[in-house]
Amino acid sequence: MKYVIPVIVVAVIVVAAIKKVKPYDAFCDGVKKAFPLVIKIFPYILTVLVMCEVFEKSGLSKLVIGWLSPVFGAFGIPEEMIGLVLVKPFSGSGSLAVLNDLLVKHGADSYVGRCAAVVYGSSETVFYVGAVYFSTCKKRSFALPVIISLAATFISTVFAVFICRII
């Protein structure tokens, strides 16, 4: 995998030379779009991250985890995993911290450790992706897509817990 990026960059330069594109000018013109793009999405990223942080620090996220634990148990998801499953949609760095805790506590090669690794690796920070992708949209009707993505993530979590038991 480590060769992907160098190969892409070399290919881009070579193709540009063949097509007689001015590489310096073209690159600069592209960079020009970076700042405005980030400034455009900044308010939305900030608002979502403030919400996530307050939700976590208030202890409310822990409370919700407590309520959901019987539901998750019914689907075969171990209790230790609930924190990770609930934090992941909100925070990438937060869930990485939770994953690290689980790996240290249960061991990297334990069942819980492997499950946690698979769940972390196969899911996305749904709310963060939503905040970023839809940041420039006028119609912000993304309740349904978010619910669908969370449902799909839940299905794959149930699957991951199951497959880690076999493999």
Partner: peptide, 26 residues
């Protein structure tokens, strides 16, 4: 966290939008 993330994004987007523009022109 949002401010830190934004700086990271500016760095990443600058590089990739530069490369992407080369691709588009070609």
């Amino acid at each position: 966290k949002a401010v830190k993330l934004s700086f990271t994004l500016i760095v990443i987007y600058s590089v990739w939008l530069g490369i992407f523009n080369l691709l588009e022109r070609s």
